[in-house]
């Protein structure tokens, strides 16, 4: 690893000021599970590393029935995975968090890091997409909020500008008749990166489903919503035929690449399979 200067600011303002001051030469350190590996490989060689760990307000989870869920960006994935309200109401997110690496990695890795890294394969991305997350972003100049759909620009690229830091994720409140699920295609049971990740969320409405959202990971330059499939399903009951059509629509909306993990064809096919399965599961959970 190359050497670097290490900072541990205690406020977001100070962290942002450091990021701006060392523009292009500084990296934010959250859990470190991506950054430290890249630094060891010298694919990242920051001269300044700014740890966010000492900023207290970044680590809370709060929920109330009015304003919904707020997850501080430094929340550990292991905490998300085990949180009872997230498991019950935001199931896909608990599952997505629990799919990252193994227990030891999830004790380090944070949701802010998982998302800010900009990986199209991030396991929390598809769940946040279907849970309607808003990304809270702060800098020395103030704060802004970006819907998660607009956060990603391409592999490793996000809307974050110089000096900006993701501080939290906010999801609207969810009722007992909403359900969600995340499934990923992998080889190993744990410790695998997503070949394909699909999350679905649905609300149960007298035999039909509504507010359907489908999120796809690792099948396009960014995580994305399968909006065509969503539109087909909303307001309808989930018949096998409709599920197949939705699965096909989700596949069609994906634009995967072939790489050493698998082919684009396989990814596209798995988008269909997992869209169908997660929709079914989400609807079942919504019905209780």
């Amino acid at each position: 690893m190359r050497n670097f200067e290490f900072f541990e600011p205690t406020t977001i303002e100070d962290a942002s000021a450091l990021l701006t001051k060392y523009n292009g030469k500084a990296k934010l350190l959250a859990g470190g599970t991506d950054l430290i590996i890249e630094m060891k490989a010298r694919t990242a060689t920051p001269e300044y590393v700014i740890s966010l760990e000492k900023i207290p307000e970044l680590a809370d989870i709060t929920y109330d029935e009015e304003s919904g869920l707020r997850i501080g960006a430094l929340t550990k994935l292991r905490t998300l995975e085990k949180d009872s309200i997230i498991r019950e109401r935001y199931t896909a997110l608990a599952e997505g968090a629990g799919e990252v690496g193994g227990v030891q990695i999830r004790h380090l890795a944070t949701i802010g890091g998982n998302i800010s890294h900009g990986s199209p394969a991030a396991d929390t991305a598809a769940p946040l997409l279907v849970l309607g997350a808003q990304v809270r972003i702060a800098s020395a100049d103030g704060e802004r909020t970006v819907p998660i759909e607009l956060f990603f620009l391409g592999p490793g690229q996000t809307v974050l500008e110089t000096g900006e830091i993701v501080t939290a994720f906010e999801c609207p409140p969810r009722s007992a008749n909403e359900g969600s699920q995340y499934i990923k295609q992998k080889i190993r049971e744990v410790m695998d990166l997503a070949f394909v990740g699909v999350a679905s969320s649905a609300k149960s409405d007298n035999g039909t489903v509504s507010e359907v959202k489908i999120g796809l990971a690792a099948v396009a330059p960014t995580p994305l919503r399968a909006t065509d499939a969503e539109a087909m399903i909303n307001g309808n009951s989930l018949t096998p035929e409709l599920l197949e059509q939705a699965a096909a629509a989700a596949s069609a909306q994906s634009s995967p690449i072939s790489d050493l993990r698998c082919s684009a064809e396989h990814r596209r096919e798995m988008v269909g399979v997992l869209t169908r399965r997660t929709l079914q599961a989400a609807a079942a959970l919504a019905q209780g």
């Binding site: 290490f6 859990g31 004790h107 380090l108």
Partner: peptide
């Protein structure tokens, strides 16, 4: 908490 110490500074 158990962590992988190779990933922590």
């Amino acid at each position: 908490k158990a962590v992988t110490s190779c990933m922590m500074l």
